[in-house]
Amino acid sequence: MTGIVGYGAYLPRYRIKIEEIASQWGKDPTTIKNGLLVHEKTVPGMDEDTITISVQAAKYAVQRARIDPQEIGAVYIGSESHPYVVKPSGTVLIDALGIGPDVHVADYEFACKAGTEAVFVAYSHVKSGVMRYAMGIGADTSQGAPGDALEFTASAGGSAFIIGSEKVVLEIEATYSYTSDTADFWRREGRVYPEHGGRFTGEPAYFRHVLGAGREIMERAGLEAKDFDYAVFHMPNGKFPMKAGRTLGFEKEQIEPGWVVPWMGNTYSGSSPTGLVAILDVARPGERILLVSFGSGAGSDAFVFKVTEEIEAVRDLAPSFKSLLEENKIYLNYGEYAKFRGKILMNT
């Protein structure tokens, strides 16, 4: 059996409320909150980035996996906010965790599905017997241009998963990827904020790929929505994943435990992976989970997981998602937020 043997999420302590962003731009917060189904979002501290978020999530994953990190043969970080354009994030992480030099490291980028992409490849290495453990991480300090719709949701956080074949917590029963060339959202070299196609990001992009991947993996696995206890979909806002889930035949109750966007925002590459970690706060042995990510450009990775008995042994070895989301929040005003996110023009 191959699957996830250790997992961990990390969220910064800072938050900004949707009202605060809306009032900055003279917009009506109620309309925006109802439209996005998001109340507040996480904000990275000035000293946090994709690397530090990944390191903390990875440390929690190692704690739960109860392994010597030196045994991890590959580390992949998926993000669209790697601090460097050239120079990997993963090299910092392996030195911080005491992994390596005997390790394969790569940074992944595929908009918001870079995290599941990392898990996908890590899984393949272990499944094929090339290595004993491999780690995939999805983390972002998401960018959204000031005043753009993305600014209401683009948030920070990430999750790390260690794949192995012993003491598996989440067996991976099936994987599938659905990919096409669809330019719904992009960021060109040297640009600070991404561009997007407005409503084109919906039906032709998000829904086509998420639904395509969801339907195909269930068909191939011979499963239906009712065979799952939980389902998590990429969460650019609150509405899209709910709509996608309902279209695939899922009930609200199956979606809600992993539907973390209303109080976290969209952590891009860390979105659906962190939704999965939230589900693991409550999942019981024998339960089945569907995960479908979405990355603009565009593609979806889908996984079918089955929870094992090990979940009870590892769940409390690192902070729960609930505690990360709800405890010790520090709220920022827009001015502080602009400073934190480097949106104030400085002469340095």
Partner: peptide, 16 residues
């Protein structure tokens, strides 16, 4: 915990 300490401007290395 592990954080970024210095950034050496926009072009330099980030020091953790």
């Amino acid at each position: 915990i592990f954080r970024c300490i210095q950034k050496e401007g926009l072009a330099g290395i980030r020091q953790y």
